[in-house]
């Protein structure tokens, strides 16, 4: 059972050092490494735990979109190597020191698909049925629309629709 859970944000420069420190402190169980694309940059998160899972720590760091480079921790936790490659493939991150060969993704797909600036063209091309409003009709003819508020489909950022 997980008893103590700590979350900590570190700078990208201190990333490897802090992970190593945590490892030496006893957080030797590597749970997962993943990322989240935010406005400020790609946030990389790693979760480590004691071997008996009594304590865990989540370390996160934010890398701005211009650099997308972070030191690999695969030499500390070999299992993290696969996770880093996945994050590399899906978010365009480059983990320095790890073999960043593509795992699954088709080269032709272009941009890393988990990045928020990747436009899902199907959602732009397809007409959103939710945009419809009840129309005011007289004798079966449309004479007006009760709402002038423009609705946007959920999950479709405004800048996707401009193109």
């Amino acid at each position: 059972m997980m008893n103590v859970s700590v979350t900590e944000t570190v700078s990208p420069e201190k990333w490897r050092e802090r992970v190593l420190q945590a490892h030496d402190h006893g957080f030797v169980f590597f749970d997962f490494l993943t990322a989240i694309d935010r406005d400020s940059g790609v946030e990389v998160v790693v979760r480590l735990a004691f071997n008996d899972l009594s304590e865990s720590i989540s370390l996160s760091t934010s890398i701005n979109h211009a650099s997308l480079r972070l030191d690999s921790i695969a030499d500390i936790f070999p299992g993290a190597g696969w996770h880093e490659r996945e994050v590399g493939e899906m978010f365009g991150m480059n983990f320095v020191g790890n073999d960043m060969q593509q795992l699954l993704r088709h080269e032709a797909l272009g941009l890393p698909p988990m990045r928020k600036n990747v436009v899902l063209s199907a959602r732009v091309v397809a007409e959103w049925p939710g945009a419809a409003e009840p129309e005011i009709k007289q004798d079966g003819r449309k004479v007006g629309n009760p709402s002038r508020r423009r609705q946007r489909p959920p999950g479709v950022p405004e800048n996707w629709l401009q193109s």
């Binding site: 397809a126 959103w128 049925p129 939710g130 419809a132 409003e133 009840p134 129309e135 005011i136 009709k137 449309k142 009760p146 609705q151 489909p153 959920p154």
Partner: peptide, 22 residues
């Protein structure tokens, strides 16, 4: 009541509703 909630929440965009006000 043609409130459109189901249409707008549907993740597959598979509901189409047409209505008018009287």
């Amino acid at each position: 009541t043609s409130c459109m909630l189901c249409v707008r929440e549907c993740p597959a965009w598979c509901i189409h509703l047409d209505s008018h006000t009287e």
